[in-house]
Design a protein around this nucleic acid. Structure first.
Lengths: 206, 206
DNA sequence: TAGATTGTTAATCGATTAACAATC
DNA sequence: TAGATTGTTAATCGATTAACAATC
């Protein structure tokens, strides 16, 4: 039996469901419905039920979904029922902010290594991390078996850093540099570029 | 004649085309093809031609696209042939990094006002900005006719800040808080949540 | 001219929605 | 039981791809 292929667009919504469920839980709610969840997210209830049904039946007819249970199931599906070690490359203003961000751990990620190539920064402390020399990136990441990395270096360095991350065995890269990076097909990349989002908005503005 | 409705998914790709074209231009290239552009972005050449044809014919058969010309056309379409004034709310680590980011101006955006509600921060300097009291947010934004805002406040404050931005006449909001915010339908919202992207990757990892 | 690449049409493919039987 | 909401099927809708005439 082969794993049924779930469309990427469905997978992409699961973290949003999980985030909304976590928020509901923190509000003290115990149960929700596809309709309520959909209203929070601006997604139709039919779509939410369809998406979830790709992975199993998590609800009860007439009642809805137990929030804690569904959240746990989604965490397992998204593989954040564990904590992933993450490397951060680049400690400019943005890298510094990312390193100090407190929102990773309870959602499945923990920064365990921070790199830069600036001699003035190497050896210095960022929060609880000592900045490592990016020269040692491959060895260090490999020895720690880190599989996920975040790139917060300049546009011009992004591809070179990417190549070395791939060499070090990293399988997922979150790229903050405003550029498309090339990777082998077994490596997953996601991008964050605020200007892209701003431009998607201004298109619609008068 | 009514404006032909272009699908959001097409609009969403235009900033990526523009970004790649700008990079090609900085590499000294003059002309490109839908195939070359597609290879850089991991998008099929047919899709790029189809997307662009929604807005007009920008290329020449046999030759391809003049990079500078197509970039200019895309800037006009995305309304970044001008510079938009932007307000930033929240100057924690992330807000500070955003305020200092040098990549906005040449892509159509300029931060012109920065707010926080922490008395220790109000009046202080962040880069070239003086942090304003968030209490005066509505008046200040209205008087400057700012239409675009970025929210880098905590999850718990995001909705309240949003409501006041809407009251101030803001039409586009880029939200860095990991939460879905509610806005009237005439206001466009985009979200940046790094953990959502990380979770989209870990789903695919072993 | 010969070669290359666009813009566009038609065909395919995939995603969303509507509807409802099942059932809690 | 009556009411509510799921999970699923079929229908609709929309997006992507393939193919090629037009033409630079």
């Amino acid at each position: 039996m082969q794993k049924p292929k779930v469309p990427d667009i469905v997978v992409g919504r699961l973290p949003l469901y999980l985030r909304a469920l976590s928020q509901m839980k923190s509000e003290g709610k115990r149960v929700t419905s596809s309709q309520e969840l959909g209203e929070r997210l601006g997604i139709s209830s039919a779509q939410i039920r369809k998406d979830l049904s790709q992975f199993g039946g998590f609800g009860k007819q007439g009642t809805g979904y137990n929030i804690a249970y569904l959240a746990d199931q989604l965490k397992t599906i998204l593989k954040v029922d564990r904590v992933w070690d993450v490397a951060l490359i680049g400690v400019g203003d943005l890298g510094r902010a990312v390193a100090n961000y407190g929102g990773f751990l309870h959602r499945g990620f923990r920064i365990v290594a921070v790199f830069d190539n600036d001699p003035a920064k190497i050896g210095s402390r960022i929060g609880s991390f000592i900045v490592e020399d990016a020269t040692n990136l491959v060895t260090s990441i490999r020895s720690k078996a880190i599989k996920v990395a975040m790139i917060a270096v300049s546009q011009v360095d992004a591809q070179a850093v990417t190549d070395r991350l791939v060499e070090a065995g990293v399988l997922g890269i979150l790229c903050y540099a405003p550029i498309s990076i090339a990777v082998p097909s077994h490596v997953k990349v996601q991008y964050i570029d605020p200007v892209v989002h701003l431009q998607r908005m201004t298109y619609h503005l008068p």
